[in-house]
């Protein structure tokens, strides 16, 4: 999802007998749904996995501002521009809530951001696709934030207290994101010209599969997913979440009067779920590896923002220093 592949360091799950007394006590606490807090003892692997997952999640929120930032100056009306800016500011906030949760684990924000800039840290593959027309702002809000909500609602119950609380704050803000997106598409489909309606379908055609990829690869028997589930960092499998998303999204798609670029998508009376086609996993791994349409552009833009803002941060420190000396002298 926003964290699509998280290394846990586990080769296989330890049995209760193999655990140290501290590890066993920790696991029992997790099993009893007691939240783990920053000052509690925790296995080193748990701490590292969380730092990886929360930083990936935070980076995704921050890089996620870029595809939408592309349309701030091109929004069709002042109302849409204000809404878009409010949404983008929320995403900056989400990044900050998450970095702050991550810092409770002893990680340093600057160091983690540096890893992102060096290409050592991941962020969601979805933000490496371009936003080519105004309908993309609708499709991003509806599909991308919609997929994020499915994942984040479940993460509210994650075992680490600060992460869980950040998720609760974020979820409160997300439904505005999804609704404003869907409304953009509805307006275009109801009142738009034929050309504008075609833009909506085009946006859905391009973003549908990348949105499904947000949930990450199929769940396998990999020790990483098993360990994350055992620690209750992860609460539902990638495939379960993807299915939930599809089941809730298809009726909305039909209401718009649009279609998905998937000939295999159809309701299955027996299972009570939608069947759907296979994701192009080669594309997923390519984008994750840095070879998507916008990977290089995204990281260059982030770096530039940090580098060109350096003088502002230095000035702020100099100003704070001067004020301190003044108040001491007085």
């Amino acid at each position: 999802m926003y964290a699509q592949l998280v290394e846990t360091g586990a080769k296989r799950l330890k049995t209760k007998e193999e655990m140290s007394p501290e590890e066993r006590e920790f696991q029992e606490k997790v099993d009893a749904e007691t939240k783990i807090e920053a000052k509690n003892w925790m296995p080193e692997g748990y701490r590292k996995t969380l730092i990886r997952q929360i930083s990936q999640h935070a980076h995704s929120e921050v890089v996620g501002m870029l595809p939408e930032g592309n349309w701030v100056t091109r929004a069709p009306t002042l109302k849409r521009k204000l809404q878009l800016m409010a949404k983008i500011q929320d995403e900056a906030g989400h990044g900050l809530y998450l970095y702050s949760a991550m810092e409770t684990l002893g990680a340093d924000r600057d160091e983690e951001i540096e890893k992102l800039h060096q290409g050592k840290a991941k962020y969601s593959s979805i933000f490496n696709y371009p936003t080519l027309n105004w309908a993309d702002m609708g499709a991003v809000g509806w599909l991308v934030d919609g997929a994020a909500i499915v994942n984040q609602v479940v993460l509210q119950r994650t075992s680490y207290g600060p992460y869980s609380r950040a998720m609760i704050r974020i979820c409160k803000e997300e439904s505005f994101h999804q609704r404003q997106g869907y409304q953009i598409l509805l307006d275009m489909m109801r009142e738009g010209t034929e050309e504008q309606k075609a833009m909506v379908q085009d946006a859905i055609n391009r973003l549908w599969w990348p949105a499904l990829m947000m949930f990450g690869p199929h769940d396998d028997e990999s020790p990483n997913s098993q360990q994350s589930m055992a620690w209750k960092i992860k609460r539902k499998s990638n495939d379960e979440l993807r299915q939930m998303f599809i089941d809730q999204t298809v009726p909305q798609l039909e209401f718009l009067g649009c279609t998905a670029p998937d000939p295999d998508l159809k309701w299955n009376e027996e299972t009570g779920h939608y069947d759907f086609g296979e994701i192009n996993w080669q594309e997923f791994y390519d984008v994750l590896k840095g070879n998507g349409p916008c990977n290089r552009e995204r990281i260059t833009t982030r770096k530039k923002a940090i580098d060109e803002g350096a003088w502002v941060r230095e000035a702020a420190v100099a100003y704070a220093e001067k004020q301190k000396q003044r108040s001491q002298a007085a």
Partner: peptide, 21 residues
């Protein structure tokens, strides 16, 4: 939650913007 800031005044402004929108 928490914020980073150069001084308390800036921390206040950042907190306002981040936690009470």
């Amino acid at each position: 939650g928490s914020v980073h800031a150069a001084d308390a005044e800036m921390a206040m402004e950042n907190a306002r913007e981040l936690y009470t929108r």
